[in-house]
């Protein structure tokens, strides 16, 4: 498969798939880019060129900075909880115990629950200030129930999303942990390393690559958290739990401002790329790319 002839044939063969994928990506992006330079409101049939007005409007909106902050808090908060919690859980699940298969399955279950469903379960069954489980527990010890979604909307969102993504991190880190050569742990034991130093000197470095994969994949999904916000707080109170994707949604579908929404979308794409470059610099070296 390495003659010039066969290589040309190979390129011709894969080109339909590549062209399809390219169009799939470039057409929506180009249309969004086009709309972002138009005054285009669904309530007003007349479209006209807007220049950078949509961008100026979106970027100077105080809600934008709040949403940007919220997006970063959600991403960083969930990453911290899932990576640290996932490592500890993986450590726990790696121990030989009775019913290991079932326990592992139970831990992975939340990942298979749809975001809207799990957010509703959390909203109505756990966080509801009158009927929720947390309220019940508060009353049990005699304290006032907390109105989670009303008073701590962002923390609640972070909690719900962490619950969903913890199994993913645990699963990846657990498989990484199982690939650690047991002789390395034994050698460290012979070398006089305590359980804690074995963890930090042997296990954590071994998990670095898997951890990088977890961080990169989760960041992609966490930047675009939407369903959980829609069904629990609807971005509120005020803009307290609005992130960038939710702000774009409000702009284009609640205020019918397609032009402004598109500008927001382009801003989100640029932000995601900045985060991606930053992350690749920071942790990508672990991947040996």
């Amino acid at each position: 498969m390495s003659t010039t002839h066969s290589r040309t044939a190979g390129k011709a063969m894969i080109s339909p798939a590549v062209i399809l994928l390219f169009l799939w990506m470039i057409v929506p992006l180009a249309m969004t880019l086009y709309f972002s330079f138009q005054f285009y409101n669904l309530l007003d049939p007349v479209k006209s060129f807007a220049g950078f007005a949509n961008y100026e409007y979106f970027l100077t909106d105080p809600a934008f900075f709040e949403a940007l902050g919220n997006t970063l808090i959600i991403v960083i908060g969930v990453l911290c909880i899932t990576v640290i919690g996932g490592t500890l859980l993986a450590l726990l699940l790696d121990q030989p115990m009775f019913g290991q298969g079932i326990v592992r399955l139970l831990f992975i279950a939340p990942f298979f629950v749809m975001p809207t469903v799990s957010a509703l379960v959390w909203k109505n069954m756990f966080m509801n200030p009158t009927n929720g489980l947390f309220a019940f527990l508060s009353k049990l010890v005699g304290s006032t129930p907390i109105d989670w979604l009303g008073h701590h909307p962002l923390a609640s969102i972070v909690m719900i999303v962490s619950w969903q993504w913890l199994p993913f991190a645990t699963l990846i880190l657990l498989t990484a942990m199982q690939s650690l050569d047991s002789e390395q742990i034994e050698a460290a034991e012979m070398d006089g390393a305590s359980a804690l130093s074995r963890f930090f000197h042997i296990i954590v470095p071994h998990l670095a690559r898997a951890g990088t994969v977890v961080i990169l994949i989760q960041t992609i999904f966490l930047l675009s958290i939407f369903a959980e916000i829609l069904v629990t707080t609807a971005g509120g109170p005020g803009y307290a739990s609005t992130n960038i994707p939710y702000l774009v949604y409000m702009q284009s579908l609640l205020q019918f401002d397609v032009g402004g929404g598109s500008a927001g979308g382009i801003v989100a794409v640029i932000l995601a790329n900045i985060v991606a470059i930053f992350l690749m610099r920071l942790v990508g070296k672990n991947l040996d790319l």
């Binding site: 050569d181 050698a187 034991e189």
Partner: peptide
């Protein structure tokens, strides 16, 4: 425990710390 026995071991896989 192993560390307190004053013994050192060389493993079949060498068990060097790769990082």
């Amino acid at each position: 425990p192993p560390a307190k026995r004053g013994l050192a071991m060389v493993f079949q896989s060498y068990a060097l710390y790769p990082h």
